[in-house]
């Protein structure tokens, strides 16, 4: 899942080398936190959050059933 978020994010931004995804896993949840170049923040959020929502939708489609998966964008 971390790789999926990395791949999607890198393919959408102008600075793919500045993309970093941090994974934090606990007993019942997984947090995936995306860091991008500040000029790319808008790209990843999209109009009314459309892009980040689409990324979440894809991640949730392949997420394990027993864990809550959060995809967040680092400010």
């Amino acid at each position: 899942m971390k790789e999926l978020v990395e791949l999607l994010t890198k393919s959408l931004v102008a600075h793919p080398d500045d993309v970093y995804v941090r994974k934090e896993e606990s007993a019942d949840s997984i947090l995936l936190e995306i860091t991008v170049h500040k000029d790319d923040l808008g790209q990843i959020i999209g109009k009314r959050g459309r892009v980040i929502k689409a990324i979440r939708t894809l991640v949730w489609a392949c997420a394990p059933a027993d864990k809550k998966v959060l995809v967040e964008l680092a400010e």
């Binding site: 999607l8 393919s11 959408l12 102008a14 459309r50 892009v51 929502k53 689409a54 990324i55 939708t57 894809l58 489609a61 392949c62």
Partner: peptide
């Protein structure tokens, strides 16, 4: 099935992101 999602929403998200990436 999981790639299609409810009312095709996963499929639509996939298509949306691929289009964005290609347009870039």
């Amino acid at each position: 099935g999981k790639l299609i999602g409810r009312h095709g929403q996963t499929l639509n998200a996939l298509q949306y992101l691929v289009n964005l990436a290609i347009r870039r």
